[in-house]
Design a protein around this nucleic acid. Structure first.
Length: 282
DNA sequence: GGCCAGGTGAAAC
DNA sequence: GTTTCACATGGC
């Protein structure tokens, strides 16, 4: 992936392995709504991020400015998805799935936002998850104004001090409210500490995340994949169960070991492409 | 209007 | 350890 960072803007040269429409609509991220014309906007890491599509490049601007490192990591630009597609195209199913979703990249998203977002996600659907996340930002986030338009950042943990289930009622997240409260409490107390977690390995992070009420196998794996970048994680949801059954004839009990055998440390990518393939192709 | 949703905790075996 | 069930609310 060719890119350069200058004048606080990230330039990404056009490449079939970088397609914003797929990256943001494949179900990993919920705050990058479509905007007018050739510009897509979203909020992450406390900033407005704008992706402008030009003839030969994408220009990515952030306000307030985000560092090159955050943006490059966010879009996973250092990883060679062409090479990954090759490695995963051993069988006909993955070959098709990788071709169908070509252009998807796994975003490296903010930990706290990812934690709450995927707690909201259980037993829900993508439009509704987006609403819960949006409402959380509206109620508790900070306002930023860019070109006369106001946006709300996703709240940092300290904005949710003393959060109660009642406070969350307008979010309409139902029974997940008590899970959110527990997650916030554990983050604020330091029991769940991102700076500690980011130096730990996949299984240790996952084990720690599982101590949060409402975080089970699947949500923990989503956080490991979408925030920590542990590509050996293979979040197994209803769609993936359907995909593994219908495409590979692998039943639920065998998914864990089978995915490890088949995809190894590319499991997370395989998962996201399979999810997108089944979810948006039927 | 009923069924289902990017699941999980708790209670029962 | 595995199975079963309730859970709150919106999308379709």
């Amino acid at each position: 992936m060719k890119y350069e960072f200058s004048d606080n803007k990230l330039h990404i040269y056009k490449d079939e392995y970088f397609l914003p429409d797929l990256i943001f609509d494949c179900g990993q991220s919920f705050r990058f709504f479509e905007a007018e014309g050739n510009v897509r906007r979203g909020i992450a890491f406390g900033s407005l991020i704008e992706i402008e599509t030009l003839e030969n490049e994408y220009i990515i601007k952030s306000t307030p400015d985000l560092s090159e490192e955050i943006l490059v990591d966010f879009f996973d630009l250092k990883r060679d998805y062409k090479e990954i597609e090759k490695m995963l195209s051993n069988d006909e199913v993955m070959k098709k799935a990788m071709g169908f979703g070509r252009g998807i990249r796994i975003l490296k998203q903010d930990f706290f936002e990812t934690l709450l977002t995927f707690i909201y996600s259980q037993q829900s659907n993508i439009p509704r998850i987006a609403k819960c996340v949006e409402k959380t930002a509206e109620l508790f986030g900070s306002e930023i104004e860019v070109s006369g338009v106001k946006y709300r950042t996703f709240p940092t943990p300290d904005k949710l001090k003393n959060l109660t289930i009642t406070d969350l009622e307008p979010v309409k997240c139902g029974y997940r409210g008590e899970y959110i409260v527990d997650a916030v409490k554990k983050v604020l107390s330091g029991e769940i500490d991102y700076n500690e977690l980011k130096n730990m390995d996949y299984l240790s992070v996952k084990k720690k995340l599982l101590t949060i009420k409402g975080v089970g196998e699947k949500v923990a794996d989503c956080i490991c994949l979408f925030s920590f970048g542990f590509f050996e994680a293979f979040p197994t949801d209803t769609w993936i169960k359907k995909a593994m059954d219908s495409l590979y004839n692998i039943k639920e009990a065998e998914i864990k070991s089978a995915s490890q055998d088949m995809f190894g440390n590319l499991s997370g990518i395989a998962q996201q492409y399979l999810f997108y393939y089944l979810r948006y192709n039927k």
